[in-house]
């Protein structure tokens, strides 16, 4: 049982390497205007293709907010100081595919740690691979147990 367990852990970690390789810039640019409020983003989900250049313009309807993208580990804070514009821009190349949660990086009240949105970089190899692995595990393990274990 321990062997199967470790094999599964290893296989799933291997997924990381299949999806790892970054793609060169595709040449297409996608720009999004994201408006932050306590405690959500509008739009909450943005979708791009792997290799796109992404420009995120963060605005706020109420107080200071920020954006931090997990996986890419990039961040932009929007502190509404007097005389400063109500917008901050984040530019990057979406070279890693998958689904990445972005969250608020400026303390903005009680639900700040849970203020999130999603960046989807297609195609989501990680999810596709894991799903296939899950289906195989579910069905094949029953087969294996039924045939080989009394």
């Amino acid at each position: 049982m321990l062997v199967v367990f470790s094999a599964l852990v290893f296989l799933t970690s291997a997924l990381a390497f299949i999806t790892g390789p970054a793609k060169a810039v595709t040449g297409s640019t996608k720009e999004f205007v994201i408006t932050a409020r306590q405690w959500a983003y509008d739009p909450p989900v943005i979708e791009v293709e792997q290799g796109d250049e992404v420009i995120i313009r963060l605005k706020s309807t109420d107080i200071s907010h920020g954006i931090y993208i997990e996986g890419y580990d990039i961040r932009a804070d929007l502190i509404l100081e007097e005389g400063m514009p109500n917008e901050v821009v984040l530019k990057f190349v979406a070279d890693k595919p998958g689904s990445f949660i972005f969250r608020c990086s400026v303390n903005c009240g009680p639900f700040h740690p849970f203020m999130t949105g999603v960046l989807k970089v297609n195609p989501n190899y990680a999810f596709q691979g894991a799903s296939i692995l899950a289906v195989l595990t579910g069905m094949l393990s029953l087969l294996y147990l039924a045939v080989f274990r009394r």
């Binding site: 599964l8 894991a130 393990s141």
Partner: peptide
């Protein structure tokens, strides 16, 4: 994902 698939098994 690794945890979930192991849990599935």
């Amino acid at each position: 994902a690794a945890l979930l698939i192991a849990g599935l098994y």
